[in-house]
């Protein structure tokens, strides 16, 4: 199987604004890749370049052995653009059939393929309406259906759950899981819990630069870290007491909420160590208001951005 995605020395700027700076990465094969970063990090720019909608200023891209220009007619790649809309005044089903036909299906094949995917939506009667008569969530779901038409090898989903309420966002995530089947997908999102939930690896961008391209397990450490939120800011005595524990590698007060301590451990017996830490904290007169084991993706991501 050819490499899923290979990018070398990619630059994109809009006038004097640098959107992407020397991005190079290689993804051999992965079922689900998350693309995360703050607003303006360059996520949509990168995905738009991959889909051929934007031209880079420099650099090369290979998607499944093709360039963004040549992959268009192969049916290997589909995209759900972030803010693109279907044509107004014409039923979305007719538009889905158009997309399927452009992918080389006959009218009958296109209709049956569209119907098959729409069946996954449950109640899909709304697809006979024009897009302006659909709710935002319905439009997103139809957008996802079009992205998975014809079983492409790679699907690009640019913020598929942005602007959706939690219930609909969850429906959309379920739909992505259901439809993806054999397809690999790259999904950009601000919701890191969503990325952690769906994806196996993650690309992190910050201010147009690539910060990391790693598996989720490498970044979001599930075992050897603790997050402890106290009832007040930790004082020097507590920090000194905790630092005396040999198995604690690092002890960092959270930047956003300083009463939260992020503790990175190196121990074979985490459970025992956890109890020991809790005891020291309580002995110092603190109350633990929140406690979780493992480092969420957001913490790992913040660490990586800080290191950069």
């Amino acid at each position: 199987m050819s490499t899923l995605l290979e990018i070398n020395g990619l630059y994109k700027h809009y006038g004097s604004t640098k959107a992407l700076i020397n991005i190079s990465l290689k993804i051999e094969h992965s079922a689900a890749i998350g693309l995360v970063g703050k607003n303006g990090a360059g996520k949509t720019t990168l995905l738009s370049i991959l889909s051929g909608a934007l031209h880079p200023n420099a650099g090369t891209i290979s998607i499944l052995g093709e360039t963004p220009q040549t992959i268009a007619t192969t049916g290997k790649l589909n995209i759900l653009p972030q803010d693109a809309t279907f044509k107004k005044g014409i039923s979305v089903k007719k538009q889905l059939i158009l997309f399927a036909r452009l992918q080389g299906m006959s009218r009958i094949e296109a209709e049956s393929s569209v119907d098959q995917l729409l069946a996954e939506l449950g109640d899909s009667s709304f697809v006979n309406k024009a897009p302006e008569h659909l709710s935002y969530g319905q439009r997103k779901r139809v957008g996802i259906v079009q992205a998975f038409l014809g079983k492409p090898q790679l699907v690009i989903l640019d913020e598929p759950t942005a602007g959706l309420d939690p219930v609909v966002a969850n429906d959309v995530r379920q739909l992505i899981r259901k439809l993806s089947g054999e397809s690999a997908f790259i999904i950009s999102s601000h919701n890191l819990y969503e990325i952690e939930d769906i994806c196996s690896s993650v690309i992190i961008l910050d201010n147009g630069k690539l910060i990391a391209n790693k598996s989720i397990s490498e970044i979001a450490d599930k075992e050897s870290s603790l997050s402890i939120t106290l009832n007040r800011l930790p004082d020097e005595n507590l920090i000194l007491a905790l630092e005396q524990i040999d198995e604690i590698n690092t002890l960092i007060a959270d930047k956003l909420s300083p009463e939260k301590l992020n503790v990175h451990l190196d121990s074979d017996n985490i459970d025992e160590l956890q109890l020991k830490i809790q005891r020291i904290i309580m002995d110092q007169g603190y109350t633990i208001t929140d406690f979780s084991r493992g480092k969420a993706l957001i913490e790992g991501m913040m660490d990586l951005v800080d290191q950069d």
Partner: peptide
């Protein structure tokens, strides 16, 4: 219109 609405981005993945 399609440049404004982004509809061409649906086509660009399927056509030259």
């Amino acid at each position: 219109t399609d440049l404004g609405s982004g509809f061409l981005r649906f086509l660009i993945a399927r056509c030259k």
